[in-house]
Write a protein that binds this DNA or RNA. Structure first.
Lengths: 117, 117
DNA sequence: ACATTATATAACCGATCAGCTAAGCACTGA
DNA sequence: TCAGTGCTTAGCTGATCGGTTATATAATGT
């Protein structure tokens, strides 16, 4: 139906608190896998896989620097996420206005038995 | 760590394409469970549970109307989602500026080869 | 009261997920 | 060339997820 693998991956990636914490850390700037793993109670391989998920979702990018793989935030996924949420927000505003009109309408003020689409 | 159950639930809810399709349908306005289930190949109980997830995440609200439970978009979760993504976007811009400054800095310029070939 | 309609809940199943440990690269430096 | 460091990959496990069917609840219409 709605085949949007990027949105799927991005939202799924963001659903995990550890991954969100990693992103928050990256707000400060680039960091290596080891640096990212350090504050967490989980193993380094676990962090490595979280990073793979984030990269697959287009939320981070990685370079190669000797044996290190520094990570930084990536813009790729963010645009689509914003677009989707913007659509929902706009719909909410529109529907809210619609509700206001309905509540203000004389038809509603008199009686609200039947509901017409 | 970062205990943000609402964000967890909201992002997780949005990770499923069926649930996003349901939200897109709700952009048009209120709809009953049956109406929401109709376009999908999955069973009604499955849709019912998707709605429960969306409600739990604060992405939709439900009323009671006889035997029907009409659903509509809810604003609750959206604010937090926006806030989180806005933070990431801002960080991306900041880091990008930082990169620009680095590339423009004389320290960096001396290290680079001249590209006017 | 009873059948119908609208939805929710329960019990189950296969797939995916997040964690672990152990082992495997790959680059660095002596 | 060999030890060490940084990270990834491979297998295992228990938990959660999304789907199913069958059943329960609840309001409506006759």
């Amino acid at each position: 139906m709605s085949a949007a693998p990027r949105l799927d991956a991005a939202f799924a990636a963001l659903a995990d608190p550890t991954r969100r914490a990693i992103l928050v850390r990256l707000v400060e700037g680039e960091a290596t896998v080891g640096e990212l793993a350090e504050p967490f109670a989980i193993s380094q391989p676990a962090v490595s896989r979280h990073l793979k998920v984030l990269e697959g979702a287009g939320l981070i990018e990685r370079r190669v620097d000797g044996t290190k793989r520094p990570c930084r935030l990536a813009p790729a996924a963010l645009t689509e996420l914003d677009a989707y949420l913007a659509m929902l927000r706009k719909a909410l505003e529109t529907n809210y206005q619609r509700l206001d009109q309905l509540l203000a309408s004389p038809t509603f003020a008199t009686k609200q038995k039947d509901e017409t689409t």
